[in-house]
Design a protein around this nucleic acid. Structure first.
Length: 329
DNA sequence: ACCCAGGAGTTCC
DNA sequence: GGAACTCATGGG
């Protein structure tokens, strides 16, 4: 399948206003994140797609000192309201306005965090996904291996998402709640191989179609609110709160990061989730999520799940070909 | 065959 | 308020 072409329409210069150091590479690119085709990274730049209203937007990101430069690519009318929404989204997605000093100060006093802080200091939580999109990611992580999560993600994005090309790179883009709400669970199960998650997707789509990001941010208790959705439990709710709503105190524990943290904090191969969470909260009060993020990412730094792209035309051509081929299969 | 994956819902006590 | 099943599916 041929990707649709997006043209350069704007450039945003976003200052990093939060205090503390800023690590652009590890803010944009997380070594533990599995491959989705929604984003690509080299040492110096990143590419990522966003949905703003019904627009599909391509963004190329780079940083000069404490300014993030975002080149914007679209194929439709990019209004000033879209520009403002995208600017807010980028600032929020990468925590450009968040203070880092309090966590850094706390973490520097914990020996188990020392090396992670040295290697990753200035890294912020990254969540280019909106609440719906991160909820779908968490849904696809439920009780499966990453290989199957990757398979399900690819199926959904190929069948219901978009394929775009801009600045020489091909990327996938998310579907909106509206674009998947009508797909019957049988199709999601049999064609997209979602298994028991197929029943949940229509509930997710309907909920996030009917509740705007502003509504969710205004919710008194987001974790409780989203657990009203069928298929959202404590883990998925925590992922939504810690990532899309960026609550630094929340950490979604699962069988994967539980073992990582047991090794870092308890000198054990594994431990009860309550034991791990108690230790995490004890060492990093108010920053369990940020601390978990640092420890997990640090454990993948030397063996990334989806490594950086080499900054040459051949690597880019291979990347583009693999996405354009899968979309036609 | 059995067990486990970057969980959640239901059904028992 | 928990423990114990069940839900899909692919890989070891």
């Amino acid at each position: 399948m041929k990707p649709r072409t997006l043209d350069h329409t704007d450039t945003l210069e976003l200052p990093v206003t939060g205090d503390g150091p800023f690590n652009a590479l590890h803010t944009f690119w997380k070594p533990s994140h599995y491959a989705t085709g929604l984003e690509a990274h080299t040492q110096a730049r990143s590419w990522r797609t966003f949905r703003i209203d019904d627009l599909v937007i391509g963004v190329r990101l780079r940083a000069e000192d404490r300014t993030v430069i975002a080149d914007v690519y679209t194929d439709a009318d990019f209004k000033s309201d879209h520009r403002q929404q995208l600017a807010r989204r980028l600032v929020s997605s990468y925590g450009l306005d968040e203070d880092q000093a309090a966590f850094t100060e706390l973490a520097a006093r914990v020996p188990a965090m020392r090396q992670a802080l040295t290697d990753l200091g200035g890294m912020r939580q990254s969540c280019p996904e909106d609440h719906f999109e991160i909820a779908v990611i968490a849904l696809l992580l439920q009780n499966v291996t990453i290989a199957r999560t990757t398979q399900m993600t690819r199926n959904l994005l190929v069948h219901y998402g978009h394929l775009v090309r801009f600045d020489g790179i091909t990327l996938r883009a998310w579907f909106t709640p509206n674009e998947i709400a009508h797909v019957p669970p049988e199709t999601l199960k049999e064609k997209d191989r979602l298994g028991f998650r197929a029943k949940s997707m229509p509930h997710y789509a309907a909920y996030f179609r009917d509740h705007s990001t502003e509504d969710l941010q205004a919710a008194g208790n987001l974790m409780e609110a989203v657990q009203e959705i069928k298929g959202v439990g404590p883990y998925t709710a925590a992922v939504i709160a810690s990532h899309a709503s960026r609550d630094p105190a929340v950490f979604g524990i699962d069988v994967w990061n539980r073992k990582i943290l047991a090794r870092c904090l308890l000198d054990a191969d594994d431990a009860e989730p309550q034991t791990v969470m108690a230790r995490l909260n004890e060492l990093f009060p108010g920053y369990a999520g940020t601390a978990g993020l640092y420890l997990v990412e640090h454990s993948y730094l030397s063996r990334p799940v989806a490594p950086l792209l080499a900054p040459d035309q051949h690597a880019l051509a291979r990347w583009n070909a693999s996405l354009e081929q899968e979309a036609s299969a």
